[in-house]
Design a protein around this nucleic acid. Structure first.
Lengths: 117, 117
DNA sequence: CGGCATCCACATGGATACTG
DNA sequence: CAGTATCCATGTGGATGCCG
């Protein structure tokens, strides 16, 4: 009833609404790219992900991943202790962001140019 | 070739990419709601929009609209001088954000609850 | 009605260095 | 490898009041 093309969702005042909630979730600078990279790769280690994202510092990546973990978008798994290794991947909830990410990419490709900003 | 289900888009390093560009565009707190409200209403005056959005101050709404104007998402038109009136509406580019907004709403409805935050 | 001016608080991110 | 610790600059938004 909410995906029939109409927009019954109102986001007024202090009321909770799915739009602002989702926006709030994606609003940190590196979140969309992190999600996109994990959608693409399936899973990555910390520094591996850092390279794939590119331009992000350890501190910020660490903070972002922690935030995404709390929100159940990203899953962190320690896969080895000897040489210490972890594996980041998307939860089911995280994978369901794929269509949103795709729409953002489509819109950006169609409507923005590098020169714009 | 980019909407066939695959994800050829890479967003590494300092390179420009449509995902981060779009994310950057939507990243201010009230932008998504403003766009959503204008998609819904077609057009609104300043204070009318302020009420529809709810909870935003004049200053911030003004800044947001100015930002969205610069990015050619929102159109501002003065429709009367005697009693001074303006009309804000979405540009074509802005209207094309509908599917992105819809995906965000769908995801939020499915995956978030009010209690979550 | 449709803003702008001010001031302030806090969130966010970058650079760099260091650790188990 | 996978982070943490500092420090600092800037971004972003809220409250309030005033103006043409």
């Amino acid at each position: 009833m909410s995906d029939d093309g109409k927009m019954p969702v109102k986001c007024s005042g202090e009321e909770w609404c799915p739009l602002t909630a989702t926006a709030n979730m994606m609003s940190k600078k590196w979140h969309p790219v992190i999600i996109h990279r994990l959608l693409d790769s399936g899973s990555s280690g910390f520094n591996e992900l850092k390279d794939e994202v590119g331009g992000v510092s350890s501190k910020v990546l660490s903070e972002s991943l922690e935030d995404l973990e709390e929100k159940n978008i990203v899953n962190r798994e320690v896969i080895s202790e000897k040489p210490f290794r972890v594996k980041y991947s998307l939860t089911e909830r995280g994978q369901e962001l794929e269509s949103t990410v795709q729409e953002m990419i489509k819109w950006g490709e169609k409507n923005l140019k590098q020169a714009d900003e």
